[in-house]
Computed example of a mutant assay.
Amino acid sequence: MTEDEAVETFYSEERWQNWLDRLADEDLDPENEDSARLLLNLQDDAAIAIAKVLAALEDDRIDEDRAVEEIRDVSDIVLAEVSFDDEDKVMLIDGVQTSLVPVFYAAEEFVVGGVVEGDVDEFVHAAADAEADEDLDAALGYVVQAGTRVIDGERLDMELVEELEYGLVSEWVNGLDSLQSAIEDPEVVEED
């Protein structure tokens, strides 16, 4: 096997663009179940890519440097500015991107620093408190720490999420829920 054959592709700009093209063709309404599912599938698909990177690292198919590089590549693709004529669609995709931010940071932190000591629920509560105090950097930091715990297998209780006031922390924790699902069942979400 040549070195090129051994290179595993975890995510691509083409894959992301296929999702965006599909969203461009859809009449999106977040209140509509099909629209909500499509946006969740978009989010889950990116989280699955991260779960696959982490699995490849765990299986020694890639090293830590490559894992960090792959996580950053997925992040760069997914978090790039999206341009649609429809401002509502831009806002909906921005929500997906926002939810995925701590997924990327948590995965990178997990690879580089390992699992953070603590409890997922406590980190989420601390993040909510920090958001209430308008310390968004600290809030994100707590959610990222919770994310390393999720990657390590600690369960994120979604009832906890329902208690959160709507805001950045609730969106970020929603991203961790996608990551948790992806780690538990990293099946590919079909684009079609």
Rank of each mutant, 00 (worst) to 15 (best):
Glu70Val: 03
Ile71Leu: 06
Ile71Val: 15
Arg72Val: 02
Asp73Met: 02
Asp73Arg: 00
Val74Phe: 01
Val74Asp: 01
Ser75Asn: 05
Ile77Asp: 01
Ile77Met: 11
Leu79Trp: 01
Ala80Arg: 09
Glu81Met: 09
Glu81Gln: 15
Ser83Asp: 15
Asp85Cys: 06
Asp86Pro: 03
Glu87Asp: 13
Asp88Asn: 11
Val90Ala: 13
Met91Gly: 05
Ile93Leu: 13
Asp94Asn: 13
Gly95Ile: 07
Gly95Pro: 11
Thr98Val: 04
Thr98Ser: 12
Thr98Gln: 09
Ser99Glu: 14
Ser99Asn: 13
Leu100Cys: 11
Pro102Cys: 05
Phe104Tyr: 08
Phe104Pro: 06
Tyr105Lys: 08
Tyr105Glu: 14
Ala106Met: 05
Ala106Gln: 09
Glu109Leu: 04
Phe110Gly: 03
Val111Cys: 05
Gly114Glu: 11
Gly114Pro: 11
Val115Lys: 09
Val115Gly: 04
Val116Arg: 12
Val116Ser: 07
Val116Phe: 04
Val116Met: 09
Gly118Ala: 05
Val120Leu: 08
Val120Gln: 01
Val120Gly: 04
Asp121Arg: 12
Asp121Gln: 08
Asp121Thr: 14
Glu122Ile: 02
Val124Asn: 14
His125Lys: 11
Ala126His: 02
Asp129Met: 07
Asp129Ala: 09
Ala130Leu: 07
Glu131Pro: 07
Ala132Met: 14
Leu136Ile: 08
Leu140Tyr: 08
Leu140Phe: 05
Gly141Ile: 10
Gly141Lys: 01
Gly147Gln: 01
Gly153Met: 12
Glu154Asn: 05
Arg155His: 12
Arg155Glu: 15
Arg155Thr: 13
Leu156Ala: 10
Leu156Val: 07
Glu159Pro: 00
Leu160Ser: 08
Glu165Ile: 03
Tyr166Gln: 15
Leu168Tyr: 09
Val169Glu: 14
Ser170Gly: 01
Trp172Cys: 00
Trp172Ser: 04
Trp172Glu: 14
Val173Arg: 05
Asn174His: 10
Leu176Val: 07
Asp177His: 12
Asp177Pro: 00
